[in-house]
Design a binder for these strands. Structure first.
Lengths: 225, 225
DNA sequence: TCAAAAGTGTTAGATTTACACCCATGA
DNA sequence: TCATGGGTGTAAATCTAACACTTTTGA
């Protein structure tokens, strides 16, 4: 190591994950009560420290796997948070990531083990440190991304109805969408495929189930919502 | 300090700044030859380490002030870069920021002192570590931001002609714009004010000089380009 | 006198928005 | 039989994109 580095100080670097889920027509976030000091008992995002032998992206993936037990989730960085007093205990720079999961894929035992729960993103309590700000920025990022990339499907089951999809977009963007205009736009996207399966749970009449065809999307990626 | 932190390791955290400037109708970036090991002599962004007693945003501002001598510049975070082997010397997590300056405001002596120069963003050499990727992401961010917020003026003198403004947008987005459509959109934005001054340098006929009125923008912030 | 940049409107096409009724079914 | 959510098309309005000529003046 050159002398160059020695003049400087090292800091703790951590990762916090904003896990988004869609449930009861609401966009929700996984939060739990902190189980350690400082801030024990406060509502908080789930996170972990970056080890010297892992990249920050790997750390985020590891943390997310630890929390959810799920692999290959959609995850993106939000940014670094490094106000000097952001962590009351020590100097910690934290890198926030957001991830999307299908709530039904989340094992209930694991959820209870980590003592986290789904809370409506619009009704969050005050969170530990700067976590509210993290969620806020993550949400903005996700909203933007969802307009131009087909990531919303990550929040739904593989098979979904058009009404579910519409409610998802309404929940994420916080405003209602015209049903006919919405369905018109969906029809233009060939990679959102109608199956011949019918969902009978959500209505008496039954609704056609759709599926996102990733391969078809890659061949003609013209997504816009 | 609680035992909680002690189990973890600290890392070096640094900041790298992508300084954008507009010169000769091209979008340029400030880069220089690294003056220290590892990587001595390689093209590189300007950066610095985050000290224990400063926030990352303050560090970015300090670094930018050090480099440019200018205060109150527009600066935004791009994101954290933390691949395990990104720095060949030590484990360093770096947070990238981009900043916009008016090239003419940059003191030539300071530029020479730091041994940096303006290089066309589309003709960058291979840079140290992951700096090319940082520039790439910074550029994307900046392009997006410039469509919805009046930040382009930060790259121009206080008084500018409409052709200059158009060339700026063309350089940033890498595509030509129709002159009449561009000027029509500008006319709709009352906060881009025509002054009664004439620029005689750029053409024989002379072109009207315009000014961005920040106060007027805040009263009616309907920017779109 | 001519080269070079400034300045100026109109029209067709594409996109977006608003809007209302019938259908199928389980309770 | 009726309440509930599923499913469908059209027309007006807005926005976007394409396009060409006149003006001024320094060299």
């Amino acid at each position: 190591m050159t002398a160059y580095y020695l003049e400087h100080q090292k800091l703790y670097v951590s990762v916090d994950v904003i896990v988004f889920g869609f449930e009861e027509n609401r966009l929700k976030v996984l939060i739990g009560r902190r189980q350690m000091d400082p801030g024990r008992g406060e509502w908080s995002l789930y996170g972990g420290f970056v080890a010297a032998d892992e990249g920050i992206d790997e750390c985020a993936e590891r943390t997310l796997l630890e929390l959810t037990g799920l692999k290959k989730l959609f995850i993106r960085q939000v940014g670094a948070f490094g106000a000097i007093d952001r962590d009351p205990g020590e100097r910690v720079v934290s890198v926030a990531y957001y991830a999307l999961i299908n709530v039904k894929d989340y094992n209930e035992k694991l959820r209870l083990k980590h003592n986290v729960e789904w809370v409506d993103v619009n009704q969050l309590p005050t969170l530990y440190s700067d976590h509210n700000e993290m969620v806020c920025q993550a949400l903005r990022r996700m909203q933007l991304k969802m307009r131009t990339e087909p990531i919303g499907f990550r929040l739904l089951p593989q098979l979904f109805t058009l009404t579910q999809l519409q409610r998802l977009y309404e929940a994420v963007n916080g405003q209602e969408i015209d049903k006919r205009n919405f369905r018109k736009r969906i029809k233009d996207m060939d990679f959102i495929e109608k199956t011949d399966l019918i969902d009978k749970d959500s209505s008496k009449r039954g609704a056609a189930l759709y599926r996102f065809n990733k391969k078809a999307y890659k061949e003609d990626p013209n997504f816009k919502l």
